[in-house]
Amino acid sequence: MDSESLLLSLELASGSGQGLSPDRRASLLTSLMLVKRDYRYDRVLFWGRVLGLVADYYIAQGLSEDQLAPRKTLYSLNCMEWSLLPPATEEMLLQTSVVSGRFLGDPSHEYEHTELQKVNDGDKVFEEEVVIQIKEETRLVSIIDQIDKAVAIIPRGALFKTPFGTTHVNRTFEGLSLSEAKKLSSYFHFKEAVELKNKTLLEKADLDPSLDFMDSLEHDIPKGSWSIQMERSNALVVLRSLLWPGLTFYHAPCTKNYGYIYVGTGEKNIDLPFML
């Protein structure tokens, strides 16, 4: 959700029981503005909150002029002091995939993971237990990256691609109509298209190159990994990710208000097919 309309956004997204206490809101409003100034971001998004056992991580993201460019991620424990997280790498994802369970709330906490590794010592091959230390900060980075790639979404038409190749906020976006808002096909993943390149020409025929340049939600695997609901007597459409429970996307049809927030433990729901 946009940091500038934070209060309205929080109010709109509160249907899922996820909110922020008044003191947190006030400090976020102040500190995110400073973040925007200090880091020279074009836009700052309040990304959400990863619940830890001792403390919660508050996450914000800074966007540059090109909306689809890699985003900078910041975290804070008290909503006032923000620290920049390093960009996620493939190595990190691989490394942290062995850690499960909840976050602790201490960025310097180290998870210990023992692994059997084959060691070649001359002719002999024997297995040795190796203890790998994984910092919670690294795990936080990789979880945020996974969530962003999997379930960060925006409505169709909210962004448009300029002839120069960059992506900008569409100022003429006036919200989805009520009938469009109920369809998954009118929402896109907020990342560079992956699936789109594999489509046939026939499927691409109806697409508007300035608007349809991202992957649509409707082909997500497994089918039904989104719950789409009308709330507040149809004045609000709410999408909840079932794959990453805790991610709520809201959009008030026919207005410019849209955004997503993640409030959750940072654990993927791997039981999803059983639960549907």
């Binding site: 709109l12 249907g15 909110g19 922020l20 206490s21």
Partner: peptide, 12 residues
């Protein structure tokens, strides 16, 4: 509950 950061919106 709101003080604790839990709960639904005010109007709901």
């Amino acid at each position: 509950f709101e003080q604790a950061g839990v709960g639904l919106g005010t109007d709901e």
